[in-house]
Design a protein around this nucleic acid. Structure first.
Lengths: 250, 250
DNA sequence: ACCTAACTCGAATCGGGTTCAAAAAACGTA
DNA sequence: TACGTTTTTTGAACCCGATTCGAGTTAGGT
């Protein structure tokens, strides 16, 4: 009885290790050769397993991709955990969240492309329900961080009391702005066609406009480039001091 | 010589008609059965042509999808042409642009999904250069409308004079907000997980926050639901009067 | 040592996008 | 109108890669 349980445990552990190996290697291959080049049989061979074994872990290729995305989302989400505790004003902490996301996207260009591809109906339809949930779940800490900062801002009076808008709905604005800018920035040739460069600088400025529009104090004019840049630098420095930001980030 | 030219013309016309037929039918099938179900050989058979003939018009399946998207983008873009001439304040005209887009998305749910799928690196890579350009080109009238409204707002003093931001870069904010909200709203189960409903109502409120943050007059508090709703109704009415909006829209 | 259940293997299957050699049509010429 | 040449159309064959599944292997229990 006891032995059955422990050997059972070992097998489960081994299974998880193998799954992690598949996910890890898949991510490497995507980083190196792109989504296009990823092949199930090649990946299996790479890990020294048969194709069929790979399919014991993932119902489909899309399912595997979702697992890769979930793993990276977990890493990404971890970056946001400590932000609500930063010794910065609430509005600056909100900026910290945006900057953290921008930097993460810059350092993991394939992550956004993968996510974008995944949530496409065609692809999403082939992801198993548990993995969909895992992916959604993995992002929760981010919205929790946003929620906490918004709630504190209201408590402190930095943000007017809610009338008909919840914390999450308030966070939806910057979230959508972020996602949208990532999409536009990633669409090959799109922004070039409009002669728009450095999209993330614009993201930051529009973010400030949005916050100021909601009367989040201290208000900051998005059209004061010097002030905007100074605030960005200040918050980045705070992130760096707290060790929440790779020194590599611009 | 003359005859050669005229018969050549006829052939070109016939070719274009056939291409339009393919695009039209492909769109129908996508509407009815979804992107997933579209098959090149089935589509060709549906139009009573051989598979190979279809490939005389489109280099690949993705190329065909881009053509479908371009056609719909042309229709969509046409809706924006007359907006700068509307007898509304500049800020309300900006809202008119956003509302028009929301309504179009609501009436053409597959259009956004298709576009989202198309700009994915994996898919975009298989679209021929001319069609990519055609798709980008098709959207130009939209950015021209935005450009015109922003320029007029500055002229009239509704919007402070540009410091370091062009008209297009100003329009980038609402654009990103729109695209982002569409993405989030389309990602099956995502917003539900955060208990967020009616994403487009929030889009409108965040839009107002963004505009107010840029000091676009007359400023409007995004957290005054009554005022926001009234303004939405007013602008929708103006669109309807000008015949720029299907009466079916909410 | 043997039996059985669970797992692993990879060659075979399958589906659908894409190609291409043959057939048909269109065109120009005598 | 008949004939050679070029262009277009055709759809069965090809190819690629995701997925499956029956044979072979391993591990646990007796």
């Amino acid at each position: 009885m006891l032995s059955a349980m422990t050997t059972g445990d070992r097998k489960r552990r081994e299974r998880e290790t193998r799954e992690a190996l598949f996910i890890e290697r898949a991510h490497e291959r995507i980083r190196e050769e792109g989504l296009l080049a990823l092949q199930m049989s090649k990946l299996a061979a790479d890990c020294e397993y048969a194709t069929g074994t790979l399919y014991q872990h993932f119902e489909s290729k899309e399912d595997l991709l979702a697992a890769v995305a979930a793993r990276t989302t977990l890493q990404r989400a971890a970056l946001f955990r400590a932000i609500p505790e930063l010794s910065l004003g609430t509005r600056s902490r909100m900026l910290a969240i945006v900057l953290t996301d921008i930097d993460f996207a810059a350092q993991n260009p394939d992550y956004y492309r993968l996510t974008q591809y995944l949530v496409t109906e065609v692809v999403w339809a082939n992801v198993s329900a548990p993995r969909r949930m895992a992916l959604l779940e993995a992002g929760k800490p981010i919205s929790e961080a946003v929620h906490a900062v918004v709630a504190e801002a209201r408590d402190r009076g930095d943000l007017p009391p809610a009338r008909e808008i919840s914390e999450d709905e308030m966070g939806l604005g910057p979230w959508a702005l972020n996602v949208g800018m990532q999409s536009l920035a990633n669409a090959q040739g799109l922004l070039d066609a409009y002669d728009i460069h450095r999209p993330y600088d614009h993201l930051i400025r529009h973010f400030h406009a949005l916050m100021t529009g909601w009367r989040w104090e201290p208000r900051l004019d998005p059209d004061e480039p010097t002030v905007v840049r100074a605030e960005t630098a200040r918050v980045r420095a705070a992130l760096r001091d707290a060790g929440l930001c790779d020194p590599g980030a611009v």
